[in-house]
Amino acid sequence: MKTPQAPHPGFPGAIWRKSSYSSGADAGDKHVCVEVAAVGEDERAVRDSKIPEGPVIRLSRGDWRSLIARLK
């Protein structure tokens, strides 16, 4: 993960970090970047870094680990 990013109105205390696998390369004309934040002790929130105030996917700790395992 890289440097902390902009806050999200629905998660005021969350520290968002851009994935080290996010790229400056583009998909069409847009950069492909994902950010994640710990939300409480047992959840992770994921968002598109191009829209920091936009929609967020919330995952339980187990779902987050499953997602990461599938992506590897």
Rank of each mutant, 00 (worst) to 15 (best):
G10E: 10
R17Q: 11
R44Q: 12
G62C: 07
A37G: 01
W16M: 04
I51R: 12
V39K: 00
L71I: 07
I15Y: 05
R65D: 14
D63L: 14
K50N: 05
A69G: 02
A14N: 08
G13S: 12
S23K: 04
V34N: 02
G13F: 14
R17I: 09
L67Q: 03
K30D: 13
H31E: 13
M1H: 12
S60V: 05
I51Q: 10
V46C: 11
G54R: 01
R61A: 15
E53Q: 08
K72R: 10
D48S: 01
A37D: 02
S49F: 06
E35P: 00
P52E: 01
G13C: 10
D29A: 06
E41K: 13
A38D: 06
I51T: 10
V34S: 03
K2R: 10
D63S: 15
I15N: 06
D29P: 04
P55Y: 05
I51P: 02
W16A: 05
P7V: 09
I15Q: 09
I57S: 08
G24P: 00
A25S: 03
H8G: 09
A27I: 15
G13L: 14
K50E: 06
E43S: 11
A27M: 15
P7F: 04
G40K: 06
S49I: 05
D48W: 01
K2P: 06
F11C: 07
R65P: 01
E53I: 03
V34T: 09
K72E: 11
P9D: 07
S66Q: 11
P7D: 02
S22L: 07
G24E: 03
R61F: 13
D48C: 02
G10R: 12
E41R: 15
S60Y: 05
R44K: 13
D63A: 15
G40D: 00
D42S: 14
V32M: 13
L67V: 06
T3K: 15
D42V: 08
E43R: 14
P55F: 05
R70G: 14
R65V: 13
T3Y: 14
P52G: 01
W64L: 04
R17N: 09
G40Y: 02
Y21V: 09
P9V: 05
G13Q: 14
D63K: 07
S60L: 06
I15F: 04
D26E: 09
R70M: 12
P55E: 08
S19M: 04
K18E: 15
M1I: 13
P9L: 11
P52D: 01
G54D: 00
H8V: 08
R44L: 12
S20Y: 03
S60K: 05
R58W: 01
V39H: 02
A45H: 03
K72P: 00
S23A: 10
E41C: 10
M1V: 10
D42C: 08
D26P: 02
V32Y: 00
L67F: 05
A37W: 01
G54M: 00
R44F: 12
S19T: 01
R17Y: 09
K50L: 10
D29R: 07
G40A: 03
I51W: 07
E53S: 07
E43C: 13
T3R: 14
L59N: 01
A25Q: 03
V39N: 00
Y21L: 14
P9Y: 06
P55W: 06
S49W: 08
S20M: 05
R44G: 02
Q5N: 02
R65W: 12
D26W: 03
S66L: 08
E43G: 10
S19L: 06
Q5E: 07
I15G: 03
G40Q: 00
D63P: 00
D63R: 15
